[in-house]
C-alpha cells in the first residue's frame, strides 16, 4: 500500500511560501519515439492498443497518432480503427492467468511486450457511505469505504474512481484518485476495510469505482505515473522516465488486467 503515502504533499506545504517562475531553457533535440498504450481486459470488447509518437517537449503540436502499424496480441491481430487505436475482433475477452504477448511492427522495427493477466483481489461489494464534517484537507461530504482481500503475498492491483454529481457532468477520465495496492504491508486472506482517501461526495452523486489487477511491471508503472502527476518539487525524487515494459525503445505500457466496475448512487 504505497501510493497512498502522499509524500509530495510536503513539497506543497513546506514550499508554499517559496516561489516559482516559468523560465526559458535550452533542451537537446530528441528523436521521435513510439508510444504504446495497450490493454487486454476481462471486460468484453474493452481491449485495445493505442499507438502515438512523442514530440519535442516545448512543441505546441499534438502528439501524432500512428495508423500504419501491424499489431498482434498472442495470435490475434488488432486492426486500426481511429485515433491510433487498434482493436481485436468483436467479442474479444481476456482470460485470467494467461500470458499475453504484444508485437508491434512499425516503420521497419519490431516492438514487443509480455503481461500476465493476474486475478483481481477480492472486493466486497458492500460499500459504506459515512458523512463527515470538513476535516484537515478533506471537504465535508460522504466518504466511500469498502472491504477487500488479498489472497497471497504477491498480488498487485490498482483502483480509480470517478463520480458525477447532479450539478456537474460526468468526468471523462478517472484520474481523481489512483491508488495502488500491493500485499507487502497488508494482511491477506482477511477482509481489510478501506476508505477512499480524501474522497467526499454529496447526496445523490453517483460514484464509479474501478478495480484492475496488474502485474509487477504495471504496478511500478502506475506508481511512477502517480508520482509524476503530482509534479516535481525540491523534495521530489530526481526526475526519471516512466518505466516501460515495451522492448525496442518505445515508451508506454502493455497490461493485461482483470477489471471490475461498481457504479453506486449515494443515497441521502
Amino acid at each position: 500500500m504505497k501510493n497512498i503515502i502522499l509524500y509530495s504533499l510536503f513539497a506543497f506545504i513546506i514550499f508554499a511560501s517559496s516561489c516559482t517562475e516559468v523560465i526559458q531553457v535550452d533542451i537537446p533535440a530528441s528523436a521521435d519515439r513510439l508510444v504504446v498504450e495497450g490493454y487486454v481486459s476481462t471486460e468484453k470488447d474493452s481491449s485495445y492498443v493505442q499507438l502515438s509518437k512523442t514530440v519535442s517537449y516545448f512543441s505546441t503540436s499534438v502528439n501524432p497518432f500512428v495508423n500504419n502499424a501491424f499489431v498482434k496480441v498472442n495470435n490475434d491481430t488488432f486492426f486500426y480503427t481511429t485515433n491510433g487505436i487498434y482493436r481485436p475482433h468483436a467479442g474479444y475477452t481476456g482470460i485470467v492467468n494467461t500470458p499475453y504477448y504484444l508485437t508491434v511492427n512499425y516503420s521497419g522495427k519490431t516492438y514487443s511486450s509480455l503481461s500476465i493477466l493476474n486475478p483481481l483481489i477480492k472486493i466486497d461489494s458492500t460499500f459504506k457511505f459515512i458523512y463527515h464534517e470538513k476535516e484537515l484537507i478533506a471537504e465535508a461530504g460522504y466518504s466511500v469505504s469498502f472491504n477487500f482481500m488479498f489472497h497471497d503475498a504477491n498480488q498487485y492491483t490498482y483502483f480509480r474512481d470517478g463520480f458525477n454529481s447532479p450539478k456537474s457532468l460526468w468526468r471523462d477520465s478517472l484520474y481523481s484518485q489512483l491508488v495502488t495496492f500491493d500485499s507487502k504491508s497488508t494482511k491477506y486472506n482477511e477482509l481489510i476495510p478501506f476508505d477512499v482517501p480524501l474522497l467526499r461526495l454529496n447526496a445523490n452523486d453517483t460514484v464509479l469505482l474501478m478495480f484492475r489487477s496488474c502485474d509487477l511491471n504495471a504496478f511500478n508503472y502506475y506508481n511512477a505515473l502517480s508520482d509524476m502527476s503530482r509534479g516535481g518539487s525540491p523534495f521530489s525524487n530526481p526526475p526519471a522516465n516512466l518505466p516501460t515494459n515495451i522492448t525496442g525503445g518505445a515508451v508506454g505500457l502493455f497490461a493485461a488486467q482483470e477489471v471490475r466496475h461498481f457504479r453506486i448512487r449515494i443515497a441521502p
Binding site: D26, V35, E37, D172, L225, V251
Partner: peptide, 25 residues
C-alpha cells in the same frame, strides 16, 4: 546540473515528459 525533459507524450490521458540523459543540462 539537472536532467532535462526533451520530449513529451500522452498516456492514460496525462501529458508526461520524456527525460533526456541524467544531469545533461
Amino acid at each position: 546540473s539537472y536532467t532535462p525533459a526533451i520530449g513529451s507524450y500522452v498516456v492514460n490521458g496525462l501529458q508526461v515528459p520524456l527525460y533526456g540523459d541524467r544531469n545533461s543540462a
